[in-house]
Computed example of a mutant assay.
Amino acid sequence: MTEQTRIVREVKLLGYNSGKLKAEHFAVVETAGAEPGPGQVLVRNRWFRVSISTRLMAEAGTEDVKGIPFPPLNPGDTLADGAIGEVVRAGPGAGLSVGSVVMHPLGWRDYAVVPAEQCRLIDSPVVDPAAWLGHGWTAYAALVKAIQVRPGDTAFVTSGAGAIGSMAGQIARLLGATRVIGTTSNQEKARWMQAELGYDAVVTRDGGSVREQLAKVAPDGIDVIVDMVGGEQLAAALEIARHGARCVLLGAVSAELNPHNATLKALVELDTFQLILRGVTMRGFSADEEAPEMFDAWIRQLADWQREGGIRTTHTMVKGLDQAPLALQEACAGHLKSLVLVELE
């Protein structure tokens, strides 16, 4: 097959849907490959990330929401997410050599024509896709720049088995927290979080009242809250927050994965007077928008922690582009742990 007749396989959204996201809402299609123009490179993808935010992106009306942190999907659009691949062709002025390994935002396809300015060179003999495509840097930036973990803190991480939470709990410990508590959906995930990620205690949705469980495992209160869920879990944590507690909001899974209608409205009732009396601070944070410069610092810090054996980049690996829609379905249903990656053949 010549370069001019290369067939590209990519995953497209078939149409808007409501309710639970399913693999049948997407299709793997073949299209004629394009050649890179000036300032562009053709990349053969090796891995790409599967993000549950795709559930919200594929909801009708998302394009009308102001401030949405990712582009909405229209029927017929090709999905996109972080990817790592090898440059196989370079257009004039691209500044990247054939054979270079790069990270870029156009996953969900086997070949991608990418503006060179959107590529980050990975200058390493061995590539750990979970380190580069994972959300550890989001958690790191949140715990270093948005709020600060102090020695002796009790940290609470919602969705602790997810892509961010699986790293946030470990990072909080490495930054000085002496007790780390998380939440997840069921006991099987809770046992995994304690065995593999070092959580001291885990509150589960299938274990009864979140408030009662959290009060039991954190009788002296909480100093740091890293929230990806919102709703009841956020409210319960803030009720027992200690004086001077710090809370960073990184997501709202309770809204994004609403089984009836994905939404950006994550409603929760809080006693703000008590937050004032206890000097609790809360802030929303986007690492992409507010701390892009911390990505390189994260890669260096991760390498140090890995050499010391202090952290694990846990992930679920799925083989083949054809399996990607099912992986997305299972991730949104909460059946997969940690970062979800697709490895292309």
Results as ranks from 00 to 15, higher is better:
residue 2 T to P: 15
residue 4 Q to D: 15
residue 5 T to L: 14
residue 19 G to C: 02
residue 25 H to I: 02
residue 38 P to T: 06
residue 41 V to N: 01
residue 41 V to Q: 04
residue 47 W to H: 13
residue 60 A to L: 03
residue 61 G to D: 11
residue 62 T to A: 07
residue 63 E to G: 15
residue 67 G to E: 04
residue 79 L to V: 11
residue 80 A to P: 02
residue 81 D to L: 06
residue 84 I to F: 10
residue 86 E to T: 15
residue 87 V to S: 00
residue 94 A to F: 03
residue 102 V to E: 09
residue 103 M to N: 11
residue 105 P to H: 04
residue 115 P to G: 04
residue 118 Q to M: 13
residue 123 D to A: 15
residue 124 S to H: 14
residue 128 D to K: 15
residue 135 H to S: 15
residue 145 K to V: 08
residue 147 I to Q: 10
residue 158 T to M: 02
residue 161 A to N: 09
residue 167 M to C: 07
residue 172 A to S: 07
residue 184 T to G: 04
residue 190 A to D: 02
residue 191 R to E: 14
residue 191 R to N: 13
residue 210 V to S: 07
residue 215 A to C: 13
residue 216 K to T: 13
residue 224 V to Y: 00
residue 229 V to W: 08
residue 254 S to H: 02
residue 254 S to P: 08
residue 262 A to T: 00
residue 264 L to N: 08
residue 266 A to H: 00
residue 272 T to N: 14
residue 278 R to S: 12
residue 294 M to F: 14
residue 295 F to K: 13
residue 306 Q to F: 02
residue 307 R to C: 13
residue 308 E to I: 11
residue 323 Q to L: 15
residue 325 P to K: 10
residue 330 E to N: 14
residue 330 E to A: 12
residue 331 A to Y: 05
residue 332 C to T: 12
residue 335 H to S: 13
residue 339 L to M: 10
